[in-house]
Amino acid sequence: MTGFHDVRFPTGVSFGATGGPEWRNEIVPLTSGLEQRNARWAQSRRHYDAGTGIRSLADLESVMTFFEARRGSLYAFRFRDPFDHLSCKSGQSVSPADQWLGHGDGVNAIFQLTKRYGEYARPITKPEPGSVRVAVNGVERSGGDFAVDTMSGRVSFQQGKVPPAGASITAGFSFDVPARFDTDRLAISLRSFKAGEIPSIPIIEVKA
């Protein structure tokens, strides 16, 4: 991904952010009274407002410094989604059996990290370094058996460790959302901040 800084937005602030996923669909009413629904996007896109996560002047200063370093919306970064950043359910521990990545064929050595929401499979492109655990047919593989590209979310098995045909590959991980500021200007009043007014700091997910 071009224009990406591999740094994370201040985590303490992100965990107080509001937001979530967005889909873009087209709904066409028919003359019969029925309707036709078409998906315009193949993947959802997340929006956040980090302003609700600011609790102190120190938080405000850290966000302003981060904003300046990214030059506003120019460079994307890692954002920790407060609601969805684990391969497992909240309150559980990451397990190598959390998410199914695919079946081996004895030749393919590369598998994309994915999180599934029912039938919808979401590619995970920014796993947290060191967090990925992988299993083949339910048996966890050691870190020497595979490598993880933390900039693409691809798991690559080493030569001689490629999953055999029919083998089920699963993984567990924590992850960030690739995102950028959805503005090039921060409007913050110190007087308003002390009075309890929350500044708006819009952040939007970016796609490769």
Rank of each mutant, 00 (worst) to 15 (best):
A147D: 10
G160S: 05
V28E: 10
P29T: 04
G91L: 08
S62Q: 10
K89D: 04
R8N: 06
E35T: 15
L30H: 05
I27H: 13
S32N: 01
A39C: 00
G106S: 12
K89N: 02
R116C: 02
R46I: 12
F83G: 06
G53T: 08
S73M: 09
A42L: 09
T114L: 10
V13S: 02
S156L: 15
D81Q: 02
P96F: 01
F9H: 03
R40C: 00
H5N: 10
S87E: 04
F157H: 14
E26Q: 11
V148R: 11
I204S: 11
R46F: 03
A50Y: 03
Q158Y: 07
F77K: 11
N38D: 01
A208K: 13
Q43R: 15
D184H: 09
R24F: 00
S14F: 00
E61P: 01
I110G: 04
A50L: 05
Y117H: 13
V13N: 03
V148W: 04
K89F: 05
S200C: 07
R78K: 13
F173C: 07
G104E: 12
G3K: 14
R133N: 07
A109Q: 12
E197R: 15
G12R: 14
G53K: 12
S93P: 02
P21I: 15
G160H: 07
G20L: 09
S142W: 08
V162L: 15
S56Y: 03
K126L: 12
A121Y: 04
A42H: 06
G91C: 05
R80Y: 00
G20Q: 03
G160Q: 08
G19K: 06
F193P: 02
K194N: 04
